[in-house]
Design a protein around this nucleic acid. Structure first.
Lengths: 341, 341
DNA sequence: CTGAAAGCGCTTACAG
DNA sequence: CTGAAAGCGCTTACAG
């Protein structure tokens, strides 16, 4: 592995000049540049990232994180990833500017973006609401050359380095397949989703429906929104069970599981509907262990927190762009036996 | 974040002395040591890993990797992880000494260990055969203080920093649960395993059996060894199918899937037994997509290659021990819908 | 027992 | 357009 010093010696110039060529800082005599470039290619020079990062330590960078609220248990795990990345990056002089927004409040999210810009951030990881006002604001920042990574949910029509998050369609398809396994392909299904206005939630339900078409006598009998709220989920599931005797399966495709399952336990304990959910936290874990929930499809929330921060830091510190634009986290199927000691 | 230079200034000593205290090199006046330790604690000093690694670059380290043969498709993926780690570590002056051993040949593995020791390695990642002669040799090297990490399969009674690999019992339990899903809990199952003499393989079958006990009318009707060989698998599965009409499910708990499934296709196409396997590569992928295989339980082979190398390098370069001794890779359930575009 | 100096590979002003 | 020097935070001989 050749170093800058060695290249300089071979080319008969100073290290500064080699540095100019390597980083295209310009202002180098053509002939000299050619000579240096030749050597670089010949010896396959690769800059030492450690040394680079060590120098860059002097100038510190701030990464803005704009996330849905950590109140949501799912985001607790995302946040754990963010914190881990932060602690690894602290010694590189990278600091975080973290703000939370209650989900679905465009107004809040806009304000947070503006605040962050005012406070000064060098990059932004955002869990954006798919709304035109957000899109517009994010497009404007492109003028100030702010590198952006979206995570957990995406937004179309903006310039961003990457999206890191769930493949919503796939999650839905997998959930449907799992229900097909356990219902002998015969089911009247109630779907409890978050909000139709959330692109991800819609895509998930969409994937679920598409997959069902391939599975004989399974059909979606009901779809209700619970806005990720347990009380709403409780009320709506209760209403469904009281009204529709045929329901024998549930797909909880977002939050609201605790409320919904409570209603099932109260009104349909004997019916024993088959339940598939999305994501995992203490409550779902218990439900898997006691058999209430057959399976849950997870989306690597930790990765969704860790990677955006990491990759933005790599971009700022080393100029490395994310290897891929669309980075889907894995759809992990968890069943009881995945958890038992 | 405080630095050595600053500690030195605060303590009124040179940086060398601070370094001695930080790294317990000894030979420091008690009073001075106390003073420095105090400052370190007070300011929560954390050494900068980058700077450390940059210096350590001068002394290069060699990590030995002793793996089962890459002929095995599963190990191709392990190897990909090893290569990735290697390329990341090259600039830190870490090089690899990689050797392959045909599976189950104790004699070969012993020879490779000896060769590596002779060639000079600073750490060893090994996929050990669970045999007393191997154990003995590995114990002897403890005398020369060789840090060891076992991967993919473990061996008891040696001193090692960590085991990174599959939780075999769990894989078996999950496979059984998946078969229970799709057979309506009524099945005559044939299990095709690698070798009873492999601890991992035995544990997997064991976990499979244990889980079945909880599932009504499911039972293991046959268990055969194929020694990870497709031809043997083909012959034995054929024999089973011709002899036993009742078989309606298979668990391929190791390699040999291609041979075994070929036999099923030839002799039991109409019977359509439910098949669950372990691991994934091109063939299994095709079988999932066309519905031949219901599900496969994977074990993150890439991680099994990447992590041992990475963690040994961290140990050698930074003195960091693995965070955990038993590092089970995740048991990933893959079904058709996990793969479809 | 302790300090001063050199160096890991890179970048950043500054001077010319 | 180019070079010499200083520095990022740490470690390693060497001298005393």
């Amino acid at each position: 592995m050749i170093t800058i010093r060695e290249i300089a010696e071979l080319a008969g110039v100073s290290r500064g000049t080699v540095d100019r060529v390597i980083n295209n800082r310009g202002g180098v005599n053509q002939a000299v540049e050619q000579r240096i470039s030749g050597i670089i290619r010949q010896y396959k020079y690769k800059p030492n990232k450690l040394a680079r990062a060590l120098v860059n330590r002097k100038k510190s960078a701030t990464i803005g994180i704009l996330s849905a609220t950590v109140e949501n248990v799912f985001f607790k795990e995302v946040y754990r990833g963010i914190r881990q990345a932060a602690s690894e990056l602290a010694e590189l002089g990278v600091s975080l500017n973290y703000k939370e927004v209650a989900k679905f409040s465009v107004r809040d999210q806009l304000r947070c973006i503006d605040d962050m810009l005012a406070e000064g951030i060098d990059a932004l990881a955002i869990n954006p609401i798919n709304d035109d006002r957000i899109r517009k604001r994010l497009l404007e920042t492109a003028g100030v050359d702010l590198p952006i990574i979206t995570f957990n949910s995406d937004i179309k029509g903006i310039r961003r380095l990457a999206y890191i998050g769930c493949d919503y369609q796939r999650t839905g398809r997998i959930a449907a397949a799992l229900l097909a396994f356990v219902t002998r392909r015969k089911a009247e299904i109630a779907v409890v989703t978050g909000s139709f206005s959330s692109l991800g939630h819609s895509m998930r339900v969409d994937g679920f429906r598409k997959e069902l078409e391939a599975h004989g006598k399974m059909r979606v009998a009901e779809v209700v929104e619970c806005f990720d709220d347990d009380i709403t989920a409780y009320a709506k599931v209760r209403e469904i069970l009281e009204r529709n005797d045929a329901i024998n399966a549930f797909f909880f495709s977002a939050a609201g599981k605790e409320g919904g399952i409570r209603a099932i336990r109260e009104c349909a304990a004997k019916r024993r509907p088959k339940i598939v959910t999305v994501d995992i936290e203490a409550f779902t874990r218990d439900c898997l262990l006691d058999g209430t929930v057959i399976a849950t499809v997870c989306q690597q929330p930790y990765v969704q927190g860790y990677e955006p921060v990491r990759q933005l830091a790599d971009y700022l510190l080393l100029g490395e762009e994310p290897a891929q634009e669309m980075q889907y986290t894995q759809a992990e199927i968890i069943i009881r036996q995945s958890l038992e000691a």
